[in-house]
């Protein structure tokens, strides 16, 4: 059974992603200098004397691993090929030679939600399509982001009628709204850059709680029964006991939930 690494961080309250790297940013120049000096100790041996001092002054920047990860993530946002309506044409043209979103690391459009980080809602969201979009969103793996492109998916646009959902944030946590009908490709690229700033800035994901939108379909965070909410060892012990005495015999585990299937014994495999 795959579980996220619980040991490296304190368990989150259920609405935040588990923070694997509990290292804080340096707050003062003195702290920053102290870390530089610690880095100098690590480098000693490769360089010596004045060379080492010069290298540390010029080239060593300390940061936290989480920050570095977020920086790397922000430069490789893979959008999903998800065209809804008119805006899809402008979304397609951002990868064309003139606009070239490859400059910002987002040119690799992925057809599968499992491989994508970003879903661009490019067009109007009808009431027939909204459940489909929510399902695709749930299938995406964390970390994941949403850009509502154009007036229709941001607020319903001109289509204030029976068939159109009045804004995609009725059912999805939207990170960036790009105005326009349709927005120019430059505007969409601007939205992607804004999203990169947001990713780098480590946004609080707690506001997603209202959508029950953390995690993915397989691994829902913030939902009752998610493994990281409970004591894992206790859970394993309970389920082993459950499996050995044969209760939960409907084959679906506790409460009919496939996630709660009894774990196999250690010698089973």
């Amino acid at each position: 059974m795959n579980t996220p690494s619980e040991q490296s961080g304190q368990p989150g309250p259920g609405n935040t992603l588990p923070n694997a790297f509990h290292v804080t940013q340096p707050r003062t120049p003195e702290e920053f200098r102290a870390r530089q000096l610690r880095a100098r100790d690590m480098l000693r041996g490769d360089l010596e004397g004045a060379d080492l001092e010069k290298f540390v002054e010029e080239a060593v920047v300390t940061t936290t691993l989480e920050r570095a990860l977020n920086w790397a993530r922000s430069q490789t946002v893979f959008p999903m090929t998800f065209g809804l309506a008119c805006c899809a044409l402008e979304m397609m043209s951002i990868v064309s030679a003139r606009y070239d979103v490859a400059r910002f690391g987002s040119e690799a459009f992925r057809a599968s939600p499992r491989q994508a980080d970003l879903i661009i809602l490019s067009g109007r969201v009808s009431i027939k399509m909204a459940p489909v979009i929510r399902r695709i969103y749930d299938q995406m793996l964390e970390p994941k982001w949403v850009i509502a492109m154009g007036a229709c998916s941001s607020s319903g646009g001109v289509f204030s009628n029976y068939a159109v959902v009045q804004g995609a944030d009725k059912f999805l946590p939207v990170d960036v709204h790009v105005p326009g009908c349709p927005p120019r490709p430059e505007a969409l690229i601007h939205g992607i850059i804004k999203l990169q700033h947001k990713i780098k800035g480590r946004p609080d994901l707690g506001w997603r709680e209202r959508y029950a939108a953390d995690g993915s379909e397989e691994w829902p965070y913030g939902r009752a029964g998610a493994p990281h909410d409970v004591n894992l060892e206790q859970l394993i012990a309970e389920r082993r006991a459950l499996g050995s005495n044969g209760s939960g015999s409907n084959g679906l585990g506790v409460n009919g939930d496939a996630r709660n299937l009894p774990l196999p014994e250690a010698g089973d495999a």
Partner: peptide
């Protein structure tokens, strides 16, 4: 006689 529908967009 079917209403146009839509709703006030709440910002």
């Amino acid at each position: 006689d079917f209403p146009l529908g839509g709703e006030l967009v709440i910002f």
